[in-house]
Every structure is written in C-alpha cells, then in structure tokens.
C-alpha cells in the first residue's frame, strides 16, 4: 500500500528497456520514501516475467496474463490499471513515454482525477510550501520536464492528489539491476473477471511492427565523432560514453566516409539534423556542413586537440586535449558524480 508502482510494457516477449529503467528509478524513489516498489505487467504468455522484474528491485509484481491483452490496446489495459491503482493506492505511478504509455497514462489519470506529467527528464523527491496558504507538503514527487519546445525546464508537483503520475522516455533513466538475489511476491490479476465486452470494442485488424533501427534524431544526448577519432576501434570509446550517458553515437561525414561508423548515424547537411540536449563533438573540426546538422543543440561540448578548430566557436565548452584521454575521464567522473 502507498508504494511506487511501475507499469511494465512488454516488447518482443520481454520487459521493455524503458520499463526496466523505470523500475530502477522507482526502486531509488521507494528507498527514499521508505516504501515498496510494485510492478504491473499486462500481456499474454507472461510465465517467468517476474524474475526479470524482481532483479530490478520490485517487491510485488501484479500480472494480468490473458491472450486478449496482447498486443496493447487502450481500454482493456486502462481497465486493469485503473482497478489496480484504486486497490493499491500507490503514491507514485510511472509509465514509459512510448506509443502505449502515452496513450494509457492520460486515460488512467483522467479516470483517477489525478495529475500526470509527460516526458519527465528527472524525478526527485522534495518538499513544498504553498505560498498562499503556507501549507507544507512533505515528500512530493518533483516531475522535471522540458516545455515550450525545450526552451524552459519546468518542475511540476501534485500537492493534493494521489497517485502522482509521470511518463519518461526510453534512455532517460539508467537501467541497473539490484545487487543480491532480490525476490518478491507475484500477485495474479484475474483479467477474465475484470474485463467486460465494453472493454474489447476496439478491434485490431492488422499490425506491422518493424525491427528496431538506429534513430539518433530522438536521442537527447549525442556523442559524435569525426575524422579525428582516427579509427573504427577508437569509436568504441564514443559508444562507451554514449551508453553511460544514455545517449546515441553519431558521426560526421568524414567519419562515415572513412568507414568508422555507419551511414544512418551521419549528422550534417547530407545526413540527419539533430537538436539534442547535449551534443559532444569528438575530433570534429566543425565544417559548416556538419554544423548545419547540429548547431541547434541546446549544449555543445567539443573535444579537440586543436584549439583553433571551428567547432570551438559554437561550442559551449571546448576541451582541448586528446579524446583518448578525455573520454575515459568523462566516464569515470560521471560514474563518480551521478547517484
């Protein structure tokens, strides 16, 4: 009761990465609030799903297993989620900001008459004093998100209503198994009893899902490399940094032409245009053709051994040095400083 609850989405027979990331975040929020972490998995043929969920820190997993629940459809998933939220009364509910999560969470928030914040980039616990009434609120969920086309960062709270719901995009939170052999309790939901004909009135006629492709345009953090990276092997460093930061790897045309990185990752006039929150340009001189594809990034960091490289003129920070030295240090200090 009054725990943190994560709606877990299934993808290709396993719990989706975004849900595992939310379980990781949910676990740390639950620890801070001194409460438990619950997961809700809705789908079909879910045998064994609990083990994966437990290894990311859930104390209870609610499983609704019914062939009518896969693939995702709004009304039956909303019915089950609503029933569980009413029964368990969690303080916080987290959903992936995916096609399904962004369809489901608002419907659930509306029926529960509670607040929902979409696409949060950070979730923290904090207190609040209402300026007008002077009333104090303890342990609220700070839901931090960009708004206004990414030009402002807003902290949203729900002082009075529960649960406090939020969606988070894939790759924003870190995914980390809990240490030790964490086990929890499985609670089965009787979907057959809950669902009525009314919940099944929208019929799926056809569905075509494409395999995952690299899509750097959606990434809020991009680690990009140029000719100065030197080799395909050296690019591995960039992949390491991107993985730690939850970002994607990109390359300049020179890097792609040299075969260091595949074409679908090319940024610039002949590649894709990106405007991430953070663009780290490694060994990129910064020709106009490349800058055209990335100069709208909210923040640019360049790593280059040439202090006069044109990229430094549009960079917020220019690190003058060898990327083989700088990138491992960035990874090291990120791990040290992030919670």
């Amino acid at each position: 009761m009054n725990n943190v609850l994560v709606y877990c989405e299934m993808e290709d027979g396993a719990v989706a990465d975004v849900s595992l990331e939310l379980l990781t975040k949910g676990r740390s929020l639950a620890n801070e609030l001194n409460c438990g972490l619950e997961a809700l998995v809705i789908g079909s043929e879910l045998n064994g799903v609990e083990n994966e969920v437990f290894s990311y820190g859930a104390d209870i997993v609610h499983v609704a297993d019914d062939k009518r629940l896969d693939p995702y459809s709004t009304l039956p998933h909303a019915k089950i989620a609503e029933d569980l939220f009413r029964g368990q009364k969690p303080v916080i509910g987290l959903f992936g900001a995916t096609s399904a999560g962004r369809d489901l969470a608002p419907r659930v928030a509306s029926v529960l008459k509670c607040g929902l914040t979409a696409d949060c980039t950070a979730l923290e616990i904090g207190d609040h004093v209402d300026n007008k009434t002077g009333k104090e609120y303890k342990n609220l969920l700070y839901q931090i998100r960009p708004a206004f086309g990414g030009n402002i960062l807003a902290t949203i709270i729900n002082p009075e209503t529960r649960p406090q719901l939020a969606t988070v995009r894939e790759g924003v939170m870190k995914k980390e198994k809990v240490t030790g052999n964490h086990k929890g309790e499985v609670k089965k939901i009787d979907a057959g009893k809950l669902l009525s004909d009314h919940d099944l009135i929208v019929k799926l006629i056809e569905r075509h899902v494409e395999p995952r492709k690299v899509n750097i345009t959606n990434s809020s953090i991009i680690v990009s490399g140029g000719y100065g990276v030197g080799s395909k092997e050296n690019f591995k460093l960039l992949f390491d940094l991107a993985e730690v930061l939850g970002g994607e790897v990109a390359g300049s045309r020179a890097a792609v032409d040299s075969g260091f990185v595949e074409h679908e990752r090319q940024v610039g006039q002949t590649g894709v245009t990106v405007r991430p929150k953070l663009y780290i340009a490694c060994g990129i001189s910064g020709q106009i053709q490349h800058r055209a594809g990335m100069d709208q990034s909210a923040m640019i960091i360049s790593i280059n051994d040439d202090p006069n490289a044109p990229i430094n003129r549009i960079a917020d920070y220019s690190i003058i040095g060898d990327l083989n030295d700088v990138i491992p240090k960035m990874i090291k200090y990120y791990k040290k400083n992030s919670k």
């Binding site: 609040h128 990414g150 709270i157």
Partner: peptide, 18 residues
Amino acid sequence: PTKVKKIESVVFKAKESK
C-alpha cells in the same frame, strides 16, 4: 492537480565558449 513549482530557462546567452 498539477502545479508548476519552478521554471528555469534553458536558452543560453550568446554562446560564450569556455
């Protein structure tokens, strides 16, 4: 139910490279 607690600008001033 949602209230805005705080707003911060993330548009940076004219680029001043550090």
